[in-house]
């Protein structure tokens, strides 16, 4: 079954084709593709639970949980990509739809970049909010 299988919806039979809106076709994502996507998502869900329980030795640049975070977020982005591309059908949609769909995620990423500022400087001291001694991270 082709991924790009298009259904013509049966409208072309009504003699409207000469008016320009009888021959439209939108992509019907095949049942098999949707089921396959669901099973991949389930497998990734199980993988993420298992991955969170693995012992990670070392870490990166003194951050002990860095590898675990990369694995967990990597799987999360993989799942999100499948949902957006297949279930939400962005892969099969028009260029304008893609612009809106991807644009939002690009925009929120730019917003997230501003957090480097907060992440890399000292928080202002607040009564009762003294630095936490047991924090694992250098600050």
């Amino acid at each position: 079954m082709s991924e790009h299988e298009a259904a013509t919806h049966g409208h072309a039979d009504h003699g409207h084709a000469d008016h320009g809106h009888g021959d439209h076709g939108h992509h019907v994502i095949p049942q098999a593709k949707l089921l396959q996507t669901f099973f991949i998502l389930m497998a990734l869900m199980i993988a993420t639970v298992v991955a969170a329980r693995l012992p990670y030795e070392g870490g990166i640049k003194g951050i002990p949980s860095a590898i675990a975070w990369l694995v967990l977020l990597g799987i999360a982005f993989w799942k999100a990509g499948l949902v957006v591309q297949i279930f939400m059908g962005v892969k099969y949609s028009t260029k304008l739809t893609k612009l809106y769909a991807y644009g939002g995620f690009v925009w929120v990423t730019l917003l997230g970049v501003t957090l480097f500022d907060y992440a890399t400087r000292q928080l202002e001291p607040v009564q009762g909010w003294e630095p936490v001694a047991e924090s694992a991270l250098p600050r």
Partner: peptide, 8 residues
């Protein structure tokens, strides 16, 4: 990130 151990 700031309170990694406590959040854990």
């Amino acid at each position: 990130w700031k309170h990694n151990a406590v959040f854990y």
